[in-house]
């Protein structure tokens, strides 16, 4: 019996010590880690839009963030978007627009939140909750950045997560206004090194590049070896004009699976398919509502 007690005591003590060490490290490093992640995200976003390697970002380019929420109240659920309002070039603050599941407009509430605070999820949730009142619960689902140039939409940036072979895979997907893929970047994953982890290699992720929306809607994974010329073009081993030609040929083809990692390949392509389809559907609904209600937005 005495043995039991010592074992229990020592195990608890060592767990506490270990927890303390890990906790302290987490507290000490979390801020720097977040900053690194944000910096990386910014870099990825600009690279996807074609501004890599210290290229000047034109001043006419604007980035407008849309945050999607699921709102639950007594009767049921509805979708809410937190979006910036006001004509292009003027600052009208943020508004929370609620849309029913059938796509009908419910109401619009103005949310007093500053440009910096809106990026922080805690602050944002608090502001929306305060504006909506206490009887509704909100749950953040995802965010989209609408990129504009002189007030015209040029791209959408979607961040999304979907299950991979092991844990979730997080990606940023860039779409053009017709919902064709501009590019995608894998932000976070824990697939097996050498197998599933190859999803972050150019020869896999660049396959999605320039695929039209019509193809993405029904994209599948093909289990056959990738032709050498296509591989070279995807990896950027041939000059640009030739690469464009080759990419054009394979534009309407399915995605070639990674050797030994079919599940990861399927996960990414169905993830991209799902994200694109849902986004296209949702954005159409939102645009519809914004137009009907004559809510002015800068994008």
């Amino acid at each position: 019996m005495k043995n039991f007690l010592t074992i229990i005591f020592r195990l608890t003590a060592s767990c506490l010590v270990a927890g303390l060490i890990m906790g302290t490290t987490f507290v000490l490093t979390n801020k720097a880690k977040k900053a690194n992640e944000h910096a990386r995200e910014q870099k990825v976003v600009f690279a996807l839009l074609g501004y890599s390697g210290g290229q000047e970002i034109p001043e006419s380019m604007g980035m407008h963030e849309l945050y999607r929420y699921v709102v639950t109240d007594g009767e049921g659920q509805s979708i809410g978007y937190l979006l910036p309002v006001g004509e292009h070039g003027q600052d009208g603050g943020f508004s929370f627009v609620r849309i029913g599941l059938d796509g009908s407009f419910l109401n619009q509430t103005s949310v007093p939140v500053s440009e910096e605070n809106v990026r922080d999820q805690g602050e944002r949730d608090k502001a929306i909750q305060a504006a909506l009142g206490g009887d509704k619960t909100i749950r953040f689902t995802d965010q989209t950045i609408v990129v504009t140039d002189h007030g015209q939409r040029t791209a959408y940036l979607l961040s999304g997560k979907f299950p991979g072979f092991k844990t979730n895979i997080a990606i940023i997907l860039a779409l053009d206004p017709e919902y064709s893929v501009i590019g995608l970047e894998v932000m976070e994953h824990e697939e097996d090194p050498g197998l599933g982890a190859e999803i972050e290699q150019d020869y896999f992720k660049n396959q999605f590049k320039y695929k039209p929306f019509e193809k993405i809607k029904s994209i599948e994974v093909a289990k056959k070896p990738m032709p050498d010329e296509y591989f070279a073009a995807l990896e950027g081993n041939v000059d640009e004009a030739a690469a464009d030609d080759i990419m054009q040929q394979y534009r309407d083809q399915d995605i070639y699976a990674l050797t030994g990692a079919t599940i990861s390949s399927v996960a990414v392509s169905s993830g991209v398919k799902g994200m694109t389809r849902k986004f296209a559907y949702r954005l159409d609904l939102l645009d519809n509502v914004l137009e009907q209600q004559q809510i002015a937005v800068p994008f």
Partner: peptide, 24 residues
């Protein structure tokens, strides 16, 4: 009696610490 759990705990702690420090 609890060597192995202690080892696992130690390794897990170091893995976490190294992982977080590298990331930061």
């Amino acid at each position: 009696r609890i060597r192995i759990p202690t080892y696992t705990l130690t390794i897990a702690t170091w893995v976490t610490v190294i992982d977080l420090t590298l990331a930061a």
